[in-house]
Design a protein around this nucleic acid. Structure first.
Length: 316
DNA sequence: AAGACGAAAGTGGTTGA
DNA sequence: TCAACAACTTTCGTCTT
């Protein structure tokens, strides 16, 4: 995790070298308002900017009521009533006739002006939804092609009058969730819901509605799809990932994956692969990354070892 | 001290009447 | 709509490294 963050930083301007140890890893401590070097502990500055909210909230309702961030929805609602109108008369401000060349340009401008305006309530809805979708998918780091699928799903849902009586946000969240699954990069529903202001149940219901009413086949999340994400979170090596994939394939052939949570299977496969390839992670680390408990990892791993007849070399 | 193990009781979601 | 059910979680004590 830490090294991922530091590896990402392409901002050379912001890079600061610690005067104490010569390395450049600083962490902010908001509780004390200090920036300290995480290697040697030198306090770099004692005036940290707290980027968090200045309010406190004790319930989800309060959180929703007080949060001031979110989609700048007002800018996308229709034209916000401040757009310019282009007159149809071919006269300039003083009433003189406009030159023919200018007239042709005016004609094109009018055409596109009208086309760009939002006509029906559906367009209006779509406009709001798309801005929300943009916000949510950016927040979650959803790739472009998946966004396209999500947008398409939403449009289909809108046509089948599915959004009526439901919040736009919940259907948007559902579309993104399903698009991720279609593209075989499943995200846990909770992760998506966490970035919205709607409750989980409503999003879950919207997911069901979209699946049943919109004509799409959504593959069930499989353990194999989770491997890339998990292994990058755990910073495992290539051969370990390959081994884990192999284990999952074998597990599928032996029908031990049915009815089990994909996270558990993927985690267990990575755990075994880690031991076999000498690229070991603790059960706790894996459990945390794959969003199941250590116990589940243990159970799946025991089961996989038993069914697949893998012998674990203990002295490693 | 940290990690692994497993038992037992509790929880949320699916299935079938 | 409700109860049964399997999978999974939580909790906790014990053993191993």
């Amino acid at each position: 995790m830490k090294s991922l963050v530091s590896a990402k930083g392409g901002h050379t301007r912001r890079k600061e070298v610690c005067m104490g140890c010569g390395q450049s890893t600083f962490t902010k401590d908001y509780a004390r308002g200090e920036r300290t070097c995480s290697v040697c502990g030198l306090v770099a500055s004692d005036r940290t900017t707290d980027t968090g909210p200045e309010w406190r909230a004790f319930t989800a309702e309060e959180e929703n009521a007080r949060a001031r961030v979110g989609a700048p929805a007002t800018y996308t609602i229709a034209d916000k009533g401040i757009s310019t109108m282009i007159d149809w008369r071919n006269r300039d401000a003083s009433g003189k006739a406009i030159k023919s060349t200018t007239r042709a340009a005016m004609y094109r401008m009018r055409k596109w002006h009208i086309r760009s305006r939002l006509h029906s309530s559906q367009h209006r809805n779509l406009s709001i939804a798309m801005s929300e979708m943009h916000r949510l998918s950016s927040q979650l780091g959803i790739p472009r092609d998946v966004r396209e699928t999500a947008a398409l799903l939403y449009r289909k849902a809108l046509i089948t009058k599915l959004v009526r009586g439901r919040s736009i946000e919940s259907v948007v969240a559902a579309s993104i969730y399903l698009a991720c699954r279609i593209h075989r990069i499943p995200r846990p529903l909770d992760e998506i819901v966490a970035e919205t202001n709607v409750d989980r149940k409503k999003v879950g219901y919207a997911v069901r509605m979209v699946v049943s009413r919109v004509n799409v086949t959504v593959p069930l999340p499989s353990a194999k799809d989770l491997i890339p994400r998990l292994s990058s979170d755990l910073m495992l090596e290539g051969r370990t990932v390959e081994k884990a994939t192999e284990i999952i394939n074998q597990a599928k052939e032996n029908y031990v994956t049915i009815g089990k949570s994909p996270g558990g299977i993927a985690g267990a496969a990575l755990y075994i692969a880690g031991i076999l390839e000498d690229d070991r992670r603790t059960q706790r680390e894996i459990a945390h990354a794959s969003r199941v408990t250590e116990v589940t990892i243990r159970n799946r791993y025991k089961e996989l070892v038993r069914v697949l007849g893998i012998t674990i070399d203990v002295n490693s």
